[in-house]
Structure formats: structure tokens, C-alpha cells
Design a protein around this nucleic acid. Structure first.
Length: 1134
RNA sequence: GGGCUUGUAGCUCAGGUGGUUAGAGCGCUACACUGAUAAUGUAGAGGUCCGUGGUUCGAGUCCACGCAGGCCCA
């Protein structure tokens, strides 16, 4: 059986053939099954949502996932990869709304919740086919036959189990969150709704700089100098929130000043505290020089003076008197706290903080244990001082019942119309509590349905008390290996440090319902943790509920019991909403209407994918935590966090040990891909046109995966040409000559590496180093470094050096030991490359492996050798054989490459073509060992650059001109500031002095009267010149070339030219490599004739010519352009 | 506004712990080489290493402050 040869490299064909092979032989399944009993390597698949079409960035993310799973499989681990689908959530709901042409409030009215959810269920798997197609075509191995699906009842049951665990630990509670709220519409607004065009409008609001009077006590005493009162100045554009003030927030590093002046409305004296940068806004420059004591009430210019300066951190903890004391909080409040959101852009640098009416305020208050100002409503609930219609509650006596904004449609143009903000401002002015009141124009969000300003308002929500476990979560995070590290320590770590409770509630329809039932007065509640528990409670409700529950409720409960028994329970809305349970006090309990955040769904996949703990306990325990996960960096606070939080809180464990967060895929100009810009790259087109391997390889080799990738199809073409093209050609070369010789590698009869020629030992040595490097980098999740190393090896070392210099060995003569060694060496290199590359380029790696080994499979199977597996993905990782690494040899080969390059450059400079042989080069050697090294590769250099011999010249020849340079690294440390002088001294040494230094190893110099002894280590000496020769020199290597062309050399050059032209003619005639020919040359001038005559044998062997005749006239001869003449010749096949 | 991140040739990227001519590939120009090659070699053109300060004998590299892009969050 011959090695397969190919006309051209057809990426798409390779991909489709290999894919068919995998599917037919279930290679993926085998790659998992064949590792049964081995240690497992656990990977978690972050579930994609199949309601959208996959993009090119999914190819990126999945390539990274695939690489390490395949690599670990090669290493012998069993790597199960359960696929999954994320099926709940807002994007799906919005898409369905759009399809049906309805809005959120229509659900339950125009369409029943039941029908609506049915639509969502259908929509969510809409593009599953496309996703499966992509998975196949890109070669992503993941188990899609048994995926986990987040809307399945088993999945939800596990979620309920987990929620109940949290509930029982006291980590699930109901509280407030600040959300945009429209009193007019009576509903909260999602960020999506807030981003509708036209919601942000320019409005003029009354803004107030309020005076908060400092309480004089131990903490604040340092600020006082006399008995004049001190005030914090804080600015707000929403004066109606001032009765709800419970703290003032300052910036830690902002500078504040204490200004002595007077209130412009009451003319009373005071010290005012505000940010230094903003003094000019409130105190006139013209008044700065006026005397404070000369001030008369009513004066236009109010004198002022800065008397002290503080950092924000100095002010922390200082207490002040409540500004509008209508409602008292239940905990200590009214003090200065530190917040990261304070600026000195506008206002006073001190932020009025009311936890009920601002998200920042709420968060910073929570972090500092500042209570909100709340009142108790008629049902006994704690509520804010503004009700859901937008009116002040009765406790705000002076303003009770007033709308904080114009929500009741008052005529604003009426002559005595005053906004509530204005009324509050007047009160503050009168009470010496306002320092400035003015209109302020700014943009503010408005409800897109009512056109009224939005309020930021606290709404009921369920929270997971992540703050309770904050420290533990941060600690666990430190044990995770993040790639890149900064995402873990910075983006994720910093965020964990400032963690707030996880708001779990969503007021939607399609999602996992919160399994909590409550009595109407909230005094009794229950959290359900399993179907069994639900059934038990249902039975209880049914058997004791007569007369308490309505007949309809009882019937629905019965229906649910039936469904549970039939294994057909649907835990979605509206069915769960129909369930009414009984409390221990025998009162009806209704479900809390919220759904949970979809991120909880996906964060719970380690447990829910196995329906833990109801099933698969053993599978779970073997596969938790994950060894490896990978997703986009935008998941840091999404999936990465929810995985981490749930595992940390419930299992006191990390959820994953290694994580690669990938960057974004941008277009070639670094812009985000978007349909609008039309710069989106269709992944299916890209995979079809360029093949999956080139796309995958490009994505990895181009830049580390955590950097953003500028996806440029030209780059893919380059990878095709440069890497795959070269590798393909190298294989083709091997196949061509192996087939000619009918050669086949026999694993049981291989020439030991030690017995192969130096060239072979070199590439084998380099290959072992490559294996080490690639393995270490894969281990470290540095796939980019692995691919770069492989690419360098293939293009530079294997193809461009080993094959290029070894070609003759492959096509010359009969099968000899040397030829066999060459075949075996090249085979070995290609085989290892096939395996090393296979995690990244799984199709091409497979193709290469099979082409190299299919012909010897039977024998390999019979002998149970390493090549027995039918697929590269079933092979065992090739271990680097350290004994085969010969660093000395690698170093020598590098010398050969560098010297060759230098000689090439000399030839170029003097326009002497490489086919023209030259007699000699001179290489200066300063040390005997250098000479030895070069001699080892002398032959290679000579044949590469077409030179007859090397002559070495050493120091004693006296021919060398040397250059000396200080060793800055060493001397710099020693001499520091005097380094420049030392450098000058060294540069000034003459040839004799350098020689003296070299000879004795030391040389005295004087620096500023001090005698120093220079040693050889203090300097670098190189020979740079040989007088009278043409010389090239680079990085310490020097070579000189003798450019004399004797007649003899000239003739040889002509002969080589003849060979070249004959070869070209053969090619043109379409002859095969092994075809024999006959050459007739028409006599020409004497030199040419002599050249052909003298090199007859050489020409014949090179060109496979059986005879070469010089004739005075050749019929039908072809004129052939030579260097500086035309030769007529004829070639015939024989 | 905050956290993280990026900025080096026309393009894509390398440049441990600071050390004296800042590199590679692609692209461009010219010449050469080639019986595996869609390759390859040599040379040329192409750099304010984002800017400004600082530390240092010495900064692409360290520090500070900016500028510009990106992501996440407000």
C-alpha cells in the first residue's frame, strides 16, 4: 500500500472526510470510552442559548475548550464533556414578545401565560440545528446526545433543592433593591426599557445645596475652633429625597476644606465643609479678600476664608443632625461614609445619600450599615416615605400626600404653581438649612409609556446573602488558576471584595419559579426543595384544605399531584402559581410570584446537569469541581461568578480549578462585529471556505486567547500558506520518495537514533525539545505558545532546513542505511507534529496521522505498537526522550545556519550567484572549542553556500582586527554612576591592549587615579574585520569570503547552470522524477565545451541522463538562456 | 465615574528579573535559489516603542500623571 499523494491541498475536503471517519467510527465516543478507569479530567460546558444563531466568536470560545479537552485525552485522562442548553431568560422572552407583537403587560391578557411559555419553549431551541451543525463542522467534541437542558423538570428540581439549602442556611431573604420605577405606570422598568430612544430628556430641576449641621462630639471635635456651627454642604437635584437622607458620602482621597462664611439667605455665620476643587463655585473670588467681621447682613459680596483642609478619610464617621426629622430610623444613622462614586465634577464633593432612592446610595449604605428611612404602612410593612403612586406618606407631615413630581397632571403654568421640590427648598431656606437653591438643567430618564420622570425606588426582591460568605469566596478564589491572572485577581477578585447581595428576583414569565409559598400576611412561609416535598405539601393541603381553599384551588392541587405521579409535572408558570399550600397554622399560602435570575440556572449546572442529589450522586462527586472551564471575559460576573458563588456557599469548594477567559472577537479594524455595520463574519462561510483547522489555528496562534482578536481573513490565508501549506508539502515530499522506493516504516525495525547521521540526530533532538515545550505550554493553558513553537519547528527547522539540506538523501540511489534513516527521521517528525497539533487542528492532525500510518496499521495492531490506534485522537501522548536532546548539536546547527546566512549576504553584496562555486571562506576563531564546533558542521555550510573549503584563522595569524565592548550588565552594577567613564576607557583600548587582555585574562586601567583590573568577563571581544578581505559580521560571528573565480570554478558554475536548465526542461516536458533522458548539446565556445566535458558525469547523475553528447549540430535544438550566453540543446526521454 | 485590560514597522504580533544597533511574519521593491513547495534566501524601504514627567550611569521594560481603544459595572 502506497502513501497517499495529493494534487493540491483541499481543506474543506480534508475536513469533511475526517468528519465522516469520526462519525462512522464514533471516534469521539471511543476517545472517552477508551480512557475508562483512568483519572478523569472534568470539563464544564457553559451552556449556550440556542435561540440565536452562532457567531464566529463561538468558534473561538469552543476552540479553546476543545484544545485542552483533547490534549488531556491524549495524556490519558478520561474527559467527559456533557453539553448543555441555556433555555430561560429575558432575551428569549423579548424575542417571543417581538414575534407575537405583544408587550409584557399583554401577557396574561392577550395571551395566556400558558400559551406564552409554550411559545418560549419552542423558540428556545429554534436554532439548535445550526448549533449542532457548527459543533460538527468546527470539530468541537462535546456530548450533545445527552445534554442538560435548564427548563427540564429534573433540572429545575435540582435548582429548587439548592435554593432550599440556601434558604435553610438563612442565605435567602427578601429585601429591597433600587430599580427605575414609573409611578404613572405603576411598574418597574428594566434596563432594556430604559434604553429605549427618547427616554432621556433635558429637564430643569430645582437643585439644593443643603446644610447638614455637624454634631459636636469626640469624633468631630478636631474640626471645631470656636462656637460657630459647622455644616456639611451637599448638593441634590432631587430635593424631595432629602427627608429620606440618612448619610453623607465623601471620596476617600478628595481634599475638603473648612470655609468660614455666612449663609446667603439668613446671613448667619458658619463653617462650611466642601471639596476644595469646588470652592470657587460657591464663594466669589472677589469676596475672598474681604474682612469677615466687616460683613453686614444683605451685603452682595459675602466674605469667606479657608481655615482648614482635610482628606475625605479624615471626615469618616463624623455625625450630623438629621436635616428633616420626620421619620426616625431604627439604627444609628446620619454620619459621613466613604464611597467610590464621589467626584468633584459638580455639586460639593459631598453626596447626599438616601438608601431608598438611589442605587449607589443603597449599596454604599448597605456596606456601611446605614439604615434606610422607612415607615410602617397599614399592613405592617416597612415602606419608603414616598408611596407607589409617587406621593409623600402621611408621616412627612408638611408635605403629606404631595406628589414628588407632577404625576397627577397639575397645570404647571398656573400662576401659583410650585413644585414639591420648590416647597421643600423654601422650607430649608427659612430654617437656615439651604446654602443655595437654583434651577439646574440636566438629562433625566423618563418612562417611555407615561413620559413622566422615573423614580429610583426600592422594590421587593429576593436576595442570596452572598455578603455573608464574602471572605470565604475571596479566599477560595485565590486557589483558582486564572488565565489571564489579572482577570482573577483584578476584575473578579476586586469585585468579590465589594460584593453585594445577589438579587435573584425577576418579574417575568419564562424561567425557574422561586419555590417559596407564603401566607398573605407573610408570617408563615415555606421553601420547597424537591418534587417529593411538593407532593407531600400538596397532599396535606388537599386533605386538610376543605373550607380553607376554594374548590378550584383544591382541584388544581389535585391535578398537580396527578402530574407529579405521572412524572409529567411542569414546574413553570402558570402551573406553580396555581398551587396553594397550607401553612402549619392551616392558612392558605401562595407562591411568591418571582422567577429567579437565569444566571442561577447556569451557575447550578455542576449539580443540576446530573439531577443531583436525586440521581447520579457518584457521577457528581467524581466530577466536582471542574478541572477546567472557559468562556468569554464578559462572563466574569455572569457564569464564572454564579458557579463560584453556589459552590462556595453550599459546598465550601471552588467550582473550577482552572479557567481561561477569552477575549472578544473584533473585526479586522478592531471594531465590534455588528449586523448594522455589516462586518460580521459568518462562521459557516469561514469554516467552509478556509477549513476548520486554518480558522482554529489562526485564532490560537495569532494572539493569546484572552486578548481581543482582530479577526482578519487575510491572516487565515497566511496560516494556510505558511503553516499548513508547508506541512502539506513536507508530507507530499515524504510520500513521493517513500513511494518511489516502496518504503514503509516498520516500527519493529528502526535504526536507533544514535546510529543516524548528525543531521537526523539534530532534528530529532529539536523535536524532543519541541515536545517538551508544547506539552508544558498546553499544561499551562498557553495554547498560543504551543502553536507558535509547532509552527516554527515545521516551517523553519523541519522544512526549511532539515528537508532542504537532506533532499539528496531521499532521492539519490538505492535504499541504504542513510536513506532509511532519513525516511524514518522525517516520518517520526511528521508523526509527532500530527499529534502535537491535533488538539488545535484536529482534522489536519488526523489526516496527517492516517496518511502516515494507515498503511502499517494491520502490523501495528498485531504488534500492539503505539501506532495501533486508527485515530490520532486515540493515541497516547508522545513523551519527550531527554536522552535524545543534544544541546551541543543544536548549538552547532545554529552556527551553521548563521554562517550560511552571512555568506549568502556576502554573495549578494558582490552579485555572485549561489550556483557559482567559490574556493574558500575564512572564519576567525578566538577559542579552540569554537573551531571544533564549526568544524562539526563545516560540510553543511559548504554545501549550503556552494564553497569548497573553510580556512580557520586564529589569533596568531595577526590578521584579525578586534572590537571590544564593555559588559554593561556586569560593570554597571559595579560602577554605577562612573559607568560612562569606564565605557570610555574600554572603548579607547587599542589592538595590542585587547590582545594583552585576552592573553593574560586581565588588564589594568586607571580611572580617576584609581587602578582597576579588567577581566575577560568585564568585556565582550569580537573580531570584526580581516584586512584585505570582504567580510560580514553579526552578533560575534565573522566570516570572510574569497571571491576569486578561477577557470576551474567558472566551468563548474557553468555545469551547474546546465543541470539547472536541463531540470527545468524536464519539468516542462512533464517528465516524472525517475524518468531517464538523453541530452544532446550543440558545441559552443571553448570554455562551455570544456565545462560540459569536465563535468559530464556530474550532469548525468543529477539529471538522470543516460547519455550526454556534444555535437556540432543538433536537430531541433532548443535555445536556452544561460548566465551570459545561449546554449542549444535537446532532451529526449528514453 | 470605578475596576480590569490594550497601545512597539502599513498590518498581525514577539520583546523573563532595566544593559547600549528594538525583532519576526505578512505586505512592498530588487536580486538570487529551487526536480517537494502555494515555498525559500539575501538586501532595501518602513519605528517619536501612545504622550508628559520621574527614578537610574543606563528605560520599550520600573513609578506617577495623562491620552486613545476595549470589556465589565455604575
Amino acid at each position: 500500500m502506497k502513501y497517499k499523494e495529493f494534487k493540491e491541498l483541499d481543506y474543506a475536503r480534508i475536513a469533511s472526510e475526517v468528519l465522516a471517519f469520526w462519525n462512522e467510527n464514533r471516534i469521539f465516543e471511543q476517545s472517552v470510552d477508551s480512557r475508562e478507569g483512568n483519572p478523569s479530567f472534568t470539563f464544564y460546558e457553559g451552556p449556550p442559548s440556542a435561540n440565536g444563531t452562532p457567531g464566529i466568536h463561538h468558534v473561538m470560545a469552543r476552540t479553546i475548550k476543545d484544545i485542552f479537552c483533547r490534549f488531556k485525552t491524549l495524556q490519558g485522562y478520561q474527559v467527559k464533556r456533557k453539553g448543555g442548553w441555556d433555555t430561560h431568560g429575558l432575551p428569549i422572552e423579548l424575542q417571543v414578545e417581538k414575534e407575537l407583537g405583544i408587550k409584557k403587560e399583554d401577557i396574561g391578557k392577550k395571551i395566556s401565560v400558558e400559551e406564552y411559555n409554550q411559545k418560549c419553549r419552542e423558540a428556545v431551541m429554534k436554532f439548535t440545528d445550526q448549533w449542532n451543525d457548527l459543533t460538527q463542522k468546527m470539530g468541537y467534541w462535546v456530548d450533545l446526545d445527552n445534554p442538560y437542558v435548564t427548563y427540564h423538570t429534573e433540572y429545575i428540581e435540582t435548582l429548587w433543592y439548592l435554593l432550599k439549602q440556601l434558604y435553610d442556611k438563612g442565605l435567602l431573604y427578601k429585601g429591597y433593591t433600587i430599580q427605575p420605577y414609573s409611578p404613572g405606570a405603576g411598574t418597574g422598568l428594566s434596563s432594556h426599557e430604559l434604553n429605549q430612544p427618547g427616554t432621556y430628556k433635558d429637564v430643569k430641576d430645582t437643585s439644593v445645596v443643603a446644610q447638614f449641621k455637624v454634631k459636636r462630639n469626640d469624633t468631630s471635635e478636631k474640626l471645631f475652633t470656636d462656637d460657630i456651627p459647622l455644616y456639611f454642604l451637599a448638593w441634590t437635584t432631587t430635593p424631595w429625597t432629602l427627608p429620606a437622607n440618612s448619610a453623607l458620602t465623601v471620596g476617600k482621597d478628595i481634599t475638603y476644606v473648612l470655609v468660614n462664611s455666612y449663609n446667603p439667605y439668613t446671613f448667619l455665620p458658619g463653617y462650611f465643609i466642601l471639596a476644595k476643587d469646588l470652592v470657587g463655585k460657591y464663594f466669589s473670588e472677589k469676596a475672598a479678600s474681604l474682612s469677615l467681621s466687616a460683613y453686614q447682613p444683605g451685603d452682595k459680596l459675602i466674605p469667606w476664608k479657608i481655615v482648614a483642609e482635610y482628606k475625605g478619610s479624615d471626615l469618616k464617621g463624623i455625625e450630623y443632625e438629621q436635616l428633616l426629622p420626620y421619620v426616625q430610623p431604627d439604627k444609628p444613622a446620619f454620619r459621613v461614609i466613604i464611597g467610590d462614586f464621589v467626584t468633584t465634577e459638580d455639586g460639593t464633593g459631598i453626596v447626599h445619600t438616601s438608601p431608598t432612592f438611589g442605587a449607589d446610595d443603597f449599596r454604599v449604605a448597605q456596606q456601611n450599615d446605614i439604615p434606610a428611612i422607612l415607615v410602617t404602612d397599614e399592613t405592617g410593612k416597612q415602606v419608603p416615605i414616598v408611596d407607589k403612586q409617587g406621593r409623600f406618606v402621611k408621616e412627612i407631615t408638611d408635605f403629606a400626600g404631595m406628589y414628588v413630581k407632577n404625576y397627577n397632571g397639575q397645570d404647571e403654568s398656573a400662576p401659583n404653581y410650585r413644585t414639591t421640590d420648590v416647597k421643600i427648598s423654601i422650607k430649608l431656606k427659612e430654617e437656615n438649612k439651604a446654602f443655595r437653591v437654583e434651577k439646574y438643567e440636566h438629562t433625566y430618564p423618563h418612562c417611555w409609556r407615561t413620559d413622566k420622570p422615573v423614580l429610583y425606588y426600592p422594590l421587593d426582591s429576593w436576595f442570596i446573602r452572598t455578603t455573608a460568605m464574602k471572605d470565604r469566596l475571596a479566599e477560595l478564589n485565590k486557589t483558582i488558576n486564572w488565565k489571564p491572572e489579572s482577570t482573577g485577581t483584578g476584575r473578579f477578585g476586586n469585585w468579590l471584595e465589594n460584593l453585594v447581595d445577589w438579587n435573584l428576583s425577576r418579574s417575568r414569565f419564562w424561567g425557574t419559579p422561586l419555590p417559596i409559598w407564603k401566607t398573605e400576611d407573610s408570617t408563615e412561609e415555606i421553601c420547597i426543595g424537591s418534587l417529593a416535598e411538593l407532593e407531600e405539601k400538596l397532599m396535606e393541603a388537599v386533605s386538610h384544605g376543605k373550607g380553607i381553599l376554594t374548590p378550584e384551588q383544591l382541584e388544581k392541587n389535585n391535578l398537580m399531584i396527578l402530574k407529579i405521579n405521572q412524572g409529567q409535572a411542569d414546574l413553570h408558570r402558570p402551573y406553580v402559581d396555581d398551587i396553594v399550600l397550607l401553612s402549619p397554622g392551616r392558612r392558605p399560602m401562595y407562591r411568591e410570584p418571582d422567577l429567579i435570575d437565569v444566571w442561577f440556572d447556569s451557575g447550578a449546572m455542576p449539580y443540576a446537569q446530573w439531577h443531583y442529589p436525586f440521581e447520579n450522586k457518584d457521577v457528581f462527586s467524581k466530577n466536582f469541581p471542574a478541572d477546567f472551564i472557559s468562556e468569554g471575559v464578559d462572563q466574569t460576573r455572569g457564569w464564572f461568578f454564579t458557579l463560584h458563588a453556589i459552590a462556595g456557599m453550599l459546598f465550601d469548594s471552588v467550582a473550577f480549578k482552572n479557567v481561561v477567559s477569552t477575549g472578544l472577537v473584533l473585526d479586522k479594524n478592531g471594531e465590534k462585529m455588528s449586523k448594522r455595520k455589516g462586518n460580521v463574519i459568518n462562521p459557516f462561510m469561514a469554516l467552509d471556505k478556509y477549513g476548520p483547522d486554518a480558522i482554529r489555528w489562526y485564532m490560537v496562534v495569532n494572539a493569546p486567547p484572552w486578548d481581543n482578536l482582530r479577526f482578519n481573513l487575510d491572516g487565515v490565508t497566511e496560516v494556510q500558506r505558511k503553516f499548513f501549506g508547508t506541512l502539506f508539502n513536507t508530507y507530499q515530499f515524504y510520500a513521493l520518495y517513500a513511494n518511489l522506493d516502496d518504503f514503509r516504516v516498520d516500527e519493529t525495525n528502526i535504526i536507533p537514533v544514535e546510529k543516524r547521521p548528525e543531521m537526523d540526530r539534530w532534528i530529532i533532538s529539536v523535536l524532543q525539545s519541541l515536545i517538551q515545550e508544547v506539552e508544558a505550554n498546553y499544561e499551562d493553558y498557553e495554547s498560543t505558545r504551543s502553536t507558535r513553537a509547532i509552527q516554527y519547528f515545521v516551517t523553519e527547522q523541519l522544512s526549511n532546513w532539515y528537508v532542504r539540506l537532506s533532499r539528496r538523501r531521499f532521492w539519490k540511489g538505492e535504499m541504504t542505511e542513510d536513506k532509511k534513516a532519513a525516511f524514518e527521521t522525517l516520518h517520526e517528525c511528521l508523526l509527532v507534529v500530527a499529534q502535537l497539533m491535533s488538539p488545535v487542528a484536529p482534522f489536519f492532525g488526523e489526516w496527517l496521522y492516517k496518511n502516515l500510518t494507515d498503511g502499517i496499521r494491520e502490523k501495528a495492531v498485531a504488534n500492539q505498537t503505539p501506532l495501533a490506534p486508527v485515530s490520532v485522537h486515540l493515541t497516547d501522548w508522545t513523551e519527550a526522550e531527554l536522552r535524545l536532546i543534544d544541546k551541543g548539536l543544536e548549538e552547532r546547527m545554529e552556527l551553521a545556519q548563521r554562517y550560511s546566512s552571512l555568506v549568502h549576504s556576502l554573495r549578494k553584496k558582490h552579485s555572485i550567484r549561489v550556483r557559482q562555486p567559490l574556493s574558500r571562506i575564512l572564519i576567525p576563531v578566538l577559542a579552540a572549542e569554537d573551531k571544533g564546533k564549526i568544524q562539526g558542521v563545516e560540510g553543511l555550510i559548504l554545501s549550503e553556500v556552494n564553497i569548497k573549503k573553510v580556512e580557520y584563522i586564529d589569533d596568531t595569524s595577526g590578521l584579525l582586527v578586534k572590537k571590544i565592548k564593555p559588559n554593561f550588565k556586569k560593570l554597571g552594577k559595579q560602577f554605577g554612576p562612573r559607568m560612562k567613564d569606564v565605557a570610555a576607557l574600554i572603548a579607547a583600548l587599542n589592538q595590542d591592549e585587547i590582545r594583552a587582555l585576552e592573553k593574560s585574562g586581565q588588564f589594568p586601567v586607571t580611572l580617576g587615579g584609581e587602578t582597576l583590573t579588567l577581566t575577560l568577563e568585564d568585556v565582550e571581544i569580537a573580531s570584526e574585520d580581516i584586512p584585505g578581505w570582504i567580510v560580514a559580521s553579526e552578533d560575534g560571528l565573522t566570516v570572510a569570503l574569497d571571491v576569486t573565480i578561477t577557470d576551474e570554478l567558472k566551468k563548474e558554475g557553468i555545469a551547474r547552470d546546465v543541470v539547472n536548465r536541463v531540470q527545468n526542461l524536464r519539468k516542462d516536458m512533464g517528465l516524472e522524477v525517475q524518468d531517464k533522458i538523453k541530452i544532446d548539446v550543440q558545441l559552443s565556445d571553448e570554455l562551455v565545451n570544456a565545462a560540459v566535458e569536465a563535468n559530464r558525469e556530474y550532469i548525468c547523475t543529477e539529471t538522470q541522463a543516460l547519455e550526454l553528447n556534444l555535437r556540432t549540430h543538433v536537430e531541433n535544438a532548443q535555445p536556452v538562456e544561460m548566465e551570459d550566453f545561449v546554449l542549444n540543446m535537446k532532451i529526449q526521454a528514453v
